[in-house]
Computed example of a mutant assay.
Amino acid sequence: MSIQDRVGAFCPHGDIRIEGKPGGPLSGLTFAAKDLFDVAGHVTGAGNPDWLATHAPASATASAVQKLLDAGASLAGKVITDELAYSLSGVNMHYGTPVNAAAPDRLPGGSSSGSAAAVAAGLVDTALGTDTGGSVRVPANNCGLYGIRTTHGRVAKDGLVPLADSFDTVGWFARDAAMLARVGEALLGPRERIPHGRILIASDCFALADPAARAALEPALQQAIKAVGPRHYLTINPDGFPAWQTAFRLIQGHEAWTTHGDWITRTQPKMAPEIMERFVAGSKVTAEELARANAVRVRVRKRIAAVLQPGDVLCLPTSSGPAAQKTISKEAENAYRMAMLQLTCTAGLAGLPQVTLPLAKLDGAPVGLSLAALPGSDWLLLELAERLAG
């Protein structure tokens, strides 16, 4: 397994290569793992040199990694993540920004930046990522890939550096829908036949996308309508997305600080200022703010349960448009992130699976269409992705 990393996706620390089990269903395939997943005998770096320096080698391999190895896929190495997974940009001030092979002048998206970059550049067949607030969906959108955020809790998270446990999920990337599903057979188990019902088009989500992006996605949307069946347009969020996004951000910040606050206080790590600011903000979330945010989360779940029936598919844009240019200012990047969270927060708050399909382009850069469904409907989405890729 010799890889020429021409896009800067792989971690500079460690050289982890493990051959998969011979004769497995994924034999002959290669994968990369985001540097949040443990591999026995190696230190997990979490995108930050001070984390790397203050943690011992893992005593066991994360079960998501092990399942792929047991299925025959070979691990080609660890790939870069945004620091502690707390960013959607794909920029890492310590290790660099992996190149987006689909749009080299644009950001790859994060926090699973190296995972997406490695797959988009053809360095590996698939790559493991994580998704808390969009960290698989956004890079898949930006890099022109198929990607899945699984139902919360569907894929085990042992051996994974957490960010916000009640939102954290395991996901993966592929260049085609068939590969996305093959990996699903290893991580989710055998295919499940889930009859599809209606396609619900989230008009308020499409309203958050740039007009040019909506126009670019229209043929893909019509293709999805044709594949799924009866269509219905609806407003998914009667509260307005700023309310949902704020609730998500408060809960995520509180959980992130609860998880990593002691280490940050003790170590005083060198960290990108905008990421440190998010941790500090999380430390200041009050009990009252957290209670209100959790009440919003309850309302979100009730709303989703009220409008989605088993087999229904919710259709929305993955992002407001193509990836941001590399030259974007920090202020504009933060505004971009906050706007992005309005589109990604629904799946997080409701624990939904969501697949991203690279079915459109705008100004030469990819734009993704997303399908989401009720928790546990992962195979429904993977099989619809295969049908749409047709």
Score class of each variant (00 low, 15 high):
R6I: 14
R6G: 07
R6S: 14
V7Y: 12
P12T: 05
G23R: 06
G23T: 04
G24R: 01
G24F: 01
G28F: 05
F31R: 10
A33D: 04
D35A: 12
F37P: 08
G45A: 15
N48T: 14
A56Q: 15
P57T: 02
A58P: 11
V65N: 01
K67T: 14
A73D: 13
G77C: 13
K78G: 07
T81H: 05
A85N: 05
S87I: 02
V91I: 15
V91G: 03
M93P: 12
M93A: 15
G96F: 11
N100E: 09
A103V: 10
D105V: 04
S112G: 02
G114R: 14
G114E: 13
A117L: 13
V119N: 04
A121T: 05
A121N: 05
V124I: 00
D125T: 15
A127E: 04
T130A: 14
T132H: 10
R137G: 04
V138A: 12
A140G: 11
A140H: 10
N142I: 01
N142M: 08
T150H: 04
H152Q: 12
G153A: 15
D158Q: 06
G159M: 13
L163G: 12
A164D: 06
A164H: 05
D165F: 02
A174I: 09
A178H: 13
M179D: 10
R182F: 04
E185A: 15
A186M: 01
R193G: 04
G197D: 06
I199G: 03
A202V: 09
C205V: 00
L208N: 00
L208Q: 09
L217T: 02
E218T: 06
P219A: 06
V228N: 08
T235M: 05
D239A: 12
Q245F: 00
Q252S: 06
G253W: 07
D262M: 01
I264D: 07
R266I: 01
V280K: 12
E288Y: 05
E289K: 00
L290T: 12
V298D: 15
V300W: 10
V307Q: 14
G311M: 05
V313T: 13
L314I: 01
L314E: 04
P322E: 08
P322W: 04
K326L: 15
T327S: 15
I328H: 00
S329T: 15
M340F: 03
L349E: 03
A350S: 09
P353A: 11
Q354Y: 00
L357Y: 10
K361D: 02
D363Y: 09
L374W: 10
P375D: 10
G376S: 03
W379E: 02
L382A: 10
L384Q: 14
L384S: 08
A385D: 09
